[in-house]
Amino acid sequence: MDELILNLKREIIEVLNLEEVKPEEIEDDAPLFGEGLGLDSIDALELIVLMEKNYGIKLSDPAQGRELFKSIRVMATYIRDNRKK
């Protein structure tokens, strides 16, 4: 799980161009949107693409993202339980 969390942080930094952020600076349980990393709606769509492209998880309902993208740990847990890649 720790490895998955670290990989996920690296992937998010790359795909969202968070050039000023290092993986260790992202707290596992910190909110990704609003406070925390301060991501926006386009970032949310990009995370949905990341889930499908890297882990074969297709979110048919974008509203699912609201729950899934609460934190890195929530994302990683969902990926661990549902990944197809």
Binding site: V15, L16, N17, I42, D43, L45, E46, V49, E52, K53
Partner: peptide
């Protein structure tokens, strides 16, 4: 086929 929202913008 993974259309990128951030590029589309």
């Amino acid at each position: 086929y993974f259309p990128s929202p951030s590029l589309f913008v």
